[in-house]
Design a protein around this nucleic acid. Structure first.
Length: 666
DNA sequence: AGCACGCCGACT
DNA sequence: GTCGGCGTGCTC
């Protein structure tokens, strides 16, 4: 029987982010097994810390005498070995703590829920139904799942009617079928979607094709107790820990950490959605976690969606992911329309006549979707004459004004741009661009008399609408409901406005919003893109989103931006940031931008005096950079002395924050 | 974070 | 001679 337990102590302190050896008291010998929660003394008697048993053994490399474990909190083995390996790897890659990762992976304990589970156990019988994966070359995805391959999958556009009468995006059916296939092979599947709307579609699709006992939803919208119950249901049955029951586990970004011992498939839908970027330390993107997990567990990985993220495109071009398109190819009918020739019939002049005619005609056949921009965009600087976004001449970062009459400066490198001139037309005057979307629904209601107008927006998003004709659905991008039978026409109205958003990836975002909307059209129904031309319109019209991603990737290579290379943002007090940058001495990085004062985004008094530097480095040196920066964080937490007494309650603002592959810097 | 260990001022 | 200041270091 094992006598030594290796324990991860539950603490936010970076210097304690390693395993501690404890002696296993004989009385606890049969309870101390990998994965259980324990309490253990830390630093002499008196103080007890919570922890997780990572492994047990008979030897210890620790020279001193081992303290004995205090207690076993419960028999539930909440830390699966695979999840530990993943958490360690993710933390190391992101210069963070395994504990922070595990906070995303393991819900907070609920005693009542756990007690019930320990008695009742998890589902043990999951029927293995065989379902073909339809819409693609026969057997191709099936063999990819069996072989642990990595795919970039073009989702089928359109909507599908399920046997129970609900309509879902066709993409959801593909992922459900793929997950069922993994279960038929005797392995589990993890399905990650950006938000609960996508999750509802996937749940509906799974109800249609998967045995109910196989499906577990880790839903962030439910209570912690419900989430803990769903989490436990993914674990092996506590009474038969060696039996593997394949499961289909779906959820949002953190489902990529779900406990799945025998993992056959991990799939993300629409990986370009910013919701896949984790806002909590250590800020690991679900896409990266999925890739690390597939490396460790050998599962197949599928990035599915209507668009191609630049990151996935890079991996396709490297040959790391295989490009898979539907067979036969299905593409929505998209027609671009110039913004000129506005229809003036009381709609505020927003709808061009071609789009107006298309909508009028289609309204007789079914519902019509009008996609509009969202109000409240951040302000940006643009050329007063041609509207081109203003960029730094040194590093091409976005220019912004700290206050209304200041000299514009670069958001990234901080360089002042008093001598700015437009890169397109050499004009030297700029303007602030801000707007709100206003009363689109009322305007459109007047423009299409005799039509029911339904609004879906961020405050009141709708998931479904019926297929009735003479219905106009006005939706802000990302909240488009699914229409029974698909829309008879889709008008993408505010393309121009959406494109004015300041960010290096506006184009990617817009193409994603438009493509996801166009995918809701009925077969053969037109989608009209208003007022946008050029490569974006071409990519949407030809349904060649990967070409646009490839072009974007070329640009990023030229500019030296991610994902052509990797970046780390280092934020904190100037002294801390400099100390962190000093730690990179000898590490083969490309360069450092800054440090510069944090970009001012509204009143943020807490951020006063903070600076940010951006480190650029190659993929090959990611581990070296992460290790060096991690060292700086630990030194910061131990070496440097604490701030003078008299600090206020609550968590003290971290003096050093490091984000690897921080999407914000774009 | 806590808490102990450690080497210099004012106290019974 | 000691009690105790909080600077520095460690936590199995």
């Amino acid at each position: 029987m094992a006598s030594v337990a290796r324990v991860l102590i539950d603490t936010p302190l970076p210097q304690l982010d390693r395993l501690f050896d404890y002696a296993i008291p004989p009385a606890l010998a049969d309870q101390v097994v990998p994965g259980v929660r324990v309490t253990a003394p830390l630093r002499a008697e008196g103080r007890l810390a919570d922890g997780l048993v990572v492994e047990v053994g008979d030897t210890s490399a620790f020279a001193g005498a081992l303290a004995p474990l205090e207690s076993v909190v419960s028999a539930a083995r909440v830390l699966a070995p695979e999840v530990w390996a993943l958490a360690r790897r993710v933390a190391d890659r992101q210069a963070g703590s395994a504990n922070d990762v595990l906070r995303l992976a393991i819900p907070r304990r609920s005693v009542a829920v756990e007690r019930k589970w320990l008695v009742q156990g998890s589902a043990r019988e999951v029927p293995r139904v065989a379902h073909p994966i339809t819409g693609y070359e026969s057997g191709l995805i099936e063999s990819a799942i069996a072989g642990g391959d990595r795919l970039a999958l073009h989702s089928l556009p359109g909507v599908a009617r399920l046997p129970d009468g609900t309509w879902v995006g066709r993409w959801a059916l593909t992922l459900a079928q793929a997950a069922v296939r993994a279960v038929a092979d005797g392995s589990s599947a993890i399905l990650a979607v950006p938000d609960y709307r996508d999750q509802e579609q996937l749940e509906a699709a799974l109800r249609a094709v998967a045995p109910p006992a196989a499906v577990a939803s880790l839903d962030a919208r439910r209570t912690n107790a419900q989430r803990y119950a769903a989490f436990l249901s993914c674990l092996p049955d506590p009474n038969r820990p060696d039996e593997h029951t394949p499961r289909i586990i779906l959820g949002n970004r953190s489902v990529v950490y779900a406990p799945a011992a025998k993992l056959g498939l991990i799939a993300l839908y629409d990986d370009g959605d910013p919701l896949f970027a984790e806002p909590l330390a250590p800020y690991a993107h679900a896409r990266d976690v999925a890739l690390l997990r597939q490396q460790q567990q050998g599962a197949a990985v599928i990035f599915a969606g209507h668009t191609r993220s630049v990151e996935v495109q890079r991996l396709v071009e490297l040959g790391y992911l295989s490009d898979v398109a539907p067979v036969p190819l299905v593409t929505p009918k998209v027609v671009p329309t110039a913004a000129q020739q506005r229809q003036q019939a009381g709609d505020g002049g927003r709808v061009p006549s071609a789009a107006f005619r298309t909508a009028t005609e289609a309204l007789l056949a079914g519902p019509v979707l009008v996609q509009v921009a969202r109000p409240g965009y951040v302000s940006l600087l643009a050329c007063r004459r041609c509207g081109q976004a203003a960029r730094c001449t040194t590093c091409a970062g976005p220019l912004q004004l700290a206050s209304s009459h200041a000299v514009p400066g670069c958001a990234w490198c901080g360089k002042l741009a008093g001598d700015w001139s437009c890169s397109e037309c050499n004009n030297t005057t700029y303007r602030m661009v801000t707007r709100g979307s206003g009363r689109t629904a009322e305007e459109l209601g007047r423009a299409f008399p005799g039509t029911r107008v339904i609004v879906s927006d961020g405050d009141r998003p709708l998931t479904h609408v019926d297929g009735e004709p003479r219905t106009l659905i006005v939706a802000t991008r990302g909240t488009e409901p699914i229409a029974a039978g698909g829309y008879a026409a889709i008008i993408l109205l505010d393309g121009e406005r959406m494109l004015q958003r300041e960010s290096l990836h506006v184009g990617d975002d817009c193409l994603r919003w438009w493509s996801n909307a166009a995918a809701l059209a009925a077969q053969g129904a037109p989608t009209v893109l208003v007022g946008v031309g050029g490569p974006l319109a071409q990519a949407l019209t030809l349904w060649q989103q990967q070409s646009y991603a490839a072009a974007q990737l070329r640009d990023r290579r030229t500019l030296g931006f991610p994902p052509a290379l990797r970046v780390a943002s280092v934020t904190g007090k100037p002294a801390s940031v400099h100390a962190a940058l000093d730690a990179l001495d000898g590490v083969p990085i490309r360069d450092v931008l800054g440090p510069a004062p944090l970009p001012a985004e509204g009143p943020r008094p807490l951020d006063e005096g903070l600076v940010r530097a951006i480190v650029r480095f190659d993929y090959a040196h990611g581990d070296a950079v992460a290790t060096a920066l991690r060292g700086a964080i630990v030194r910061q937490a131990t070496g440097g002395r604490r701030p003078p007494a008299g600090r206020k309650r609550g968590r003290p603002a971290p003096t050093l924050r490091i984000k690897l592959d921080d999407p914000e810097i774009l």
